[in-house]
Amino acid sequence: MRILVINPGSTTTKIAVYENENRLFVKTFYHSPDDLSSFSTILSQYDYRRDLIIDELKKEDLFYGFAAIVGRGGLLKPISSGVYEVNELMKSDLRNALMQHACNLGGLLAEEISLLIPGCKAYIADPVVVDELEDVARISGSPLLPRLSVFHALNHKAIAHKYARSINKKYEELNLVVAHLGGGISVAAHRQGKVIDVNNALDGSGSFSPERAGTLPARQLVELCFSGKYTEDEIVKMIRGKGGLVAYLGTTDVQVVIKRIEEGDKKAELILKAMIYNIAKEIGAMCAALCGKVDSIVLTGGIAYSSYCVNKLNEYISFLAPINIFPGEDEMEALAFNALRALKREQTCEEYI
């Protein structure tokens, strides 16, 4: 079964072609600020990205025979984990999402391109809005501000399944704390196949990250908002996009920060230590959410490649549970394998309602 994977990001569009489990082709289109400057919204980039994808597939003589096209899921209403066929309601919700992000284009692109190929299905899988929180995890302290589940669900679920397979267990048999360490950081408590608690990795809770501010002092944030010095958009960018490491050190690249530390930069050392310290506290909190019954702490994402960061983090958390490391993320493979399971009916294809 041939599957096309489409993964739109803020500065890239990634595509891959799979034949069953085998990847035949992969391509990343990089979008510079100049490339995107003429588009006022994410949605207005749609035709530009679609044409890049179709033209590339035709150039490589790959634009045929797809059984399914699977796109990265967008900022939809909260849904359970799984594979969803794109329908009219989903398309409407993606076009009118409350938050703009390039991932909203994934399902739309998959559906339109699928219509050009006879018998082709269009799916999304495990979008960032996967919500399996226990009720107690939703209570924030203000009934006006419930806690929301927005995290790297696709990679969390894929890596949790991969770890389970590595020890000949089922994901549903395990209690795991999974920490995705990338541009955004999400730490979740996985209890027997469900993510019962996780920080909102997009809009402000948990550890700060290379580009996100994480949890901030509430009263000081209120004062900042009403100071008259910043617009709402500027405040949002301080929280998401220009927060965390980049706010303190001017870079989102952890390896650049480590190089500065090696050259004697004490501020860089303090800020990176603080980020690792906050990640450790989140992991400890999720161990508590599982009542200390944790089979493994699983570290993933790009920062998990860094022995400097992993070793420093281990100093804080090694007493909690065994630690296993699956560095990086393969969202393309995770999307493809989800679609393949749906096509083979090894996994129920859910309806978005």
Rank of each mutant, 00 (worst) to 15 (best):
Asn199Gln: 11
Asn338Lys: 15
Phe208His: 11
Arg341Phe: 00
Asp34Met: 13
Gly65Lys: 13
Gly228Pro: 14
Ser306Met: 05
Arg23Gln: 15
Asp93Asn: 10
Met1Tyr: 06
His161Gly: 00
Arg240Gly: 00
Gly241Ala: 10
Ser38Gln: 12
Ala339Gly: 06
Leu43Thr: 08
Phe337Trp: 05
Leu52Trp: 06
Tyr230Trp: 11
Ser142Asp: 09
Lys242Arg: 15
Tyr123Ser: 05
Leu57Cys: 11
Lys242Met: 11
Ala268Trp: 12
Glu19Val: 01
Tyr46Thr: 04
Gly65Glu: 15
Gly183Arg: 10
Ala304Asp: 10
Ala125Glu: 06
Pro127Ser: 04
Ala110Ser: 11
Gly228Ile: 12
Ser114Leu: 09
Glu111Ser: 13
Ala110Asp: 03
Asp61Leu: 10
Tyr48Arg: 05
Gly328His: 07
Ile15Asp: 07
Ile3Leu: 11
Lys344Met: 13
Gly328Ser: 04
Gly193Glu: 08
Leu57Arg: 12
Ser32Thr: 15
Val136Ala: 12
Tyr48Gln: 02
Leu75Val: 14
Ile297Gly: 06
Phe39Gly: 08
Phe63His: 12
Lys14Cys: 08
Ala218Arg: 06
Glu263Ile: 00
Met238Arg: 15
Gly214Asn: 09
Lys267Leu: 15
Leu335Lys: 09
Lys170Arg: 14
Asn96Trp: 04
Leu4Tyr: 10
Asn20Ala: 07
Ala288Lys: 13
Ser114Ala: 15
Ser205His: 11
Leu148Gln: 14
Phe226Trp: 09
Lys344Leu: 14
Thr300Gln: 06
Ser140Ala: 07
Asn20Glu: 13
Gly193Gln: 08
Glu331Leu: 01
His180Gly: 10
Asn199Arg: 10
Ile323Ala: 03
Glu132Leu: 05
Ile317Asp: 07
Glu21His: 09
Thr41Leu: 04
Glu351Arg: 15
Val195His: 01
Val195Gln: 08
His31Ser: 04
Glu19His: 12
Lys267Ala: 00
Ile15Trp: 06
Leu340Met: 14
Asn20Leu: 04
Phe208Leu: 13
Ala339Ile: 08
Met1Arg: 09
Ile139Met: 10
Glu19Asn: 14
Asn314Leu: 14
Ile42Glu: 11
Ser142Cys: 07
Asp131Gln: 14
Gly74His: 02
Leu176Ala: 09
Pro118Asp: 13
Ile69Cys: 07
Ala247Gly: 13
Asn96Asp: 10
Gln100Asp: 15
Met90Thr: 05
Asp265Glu: 11
Ser38Leu: 07
Ser140Lys: 11
Tyr46Gln: 07
Gly292Glu: 02
Gly328Gln: 03
Ala125Ser: 13
Asp34Ala: 15
Ile261Leu: 08
Tyr84Asn: 08
Ala164Pro: 03
Val128His: 01
Leu202Thr: 06
Leu313Val: 02
Val256Gln: 15
Glu172Ile: 04
His161Asn: 14
Ser140Pro: 07
Arg191Gly: 03
Thr251Ile: 12
Asn168Met: 02
Gly183Lys: 09
Ser32Glu: 15
Leu335Asn: 05
Tyr230Cys: 00
Ala67Phe: 03
Gly241Lys: 12
Ala342Lys: 09
Ile279Thr: 09
Lys237Tyr: 10
Arg165Ile: 00
Asp93Gln: 13
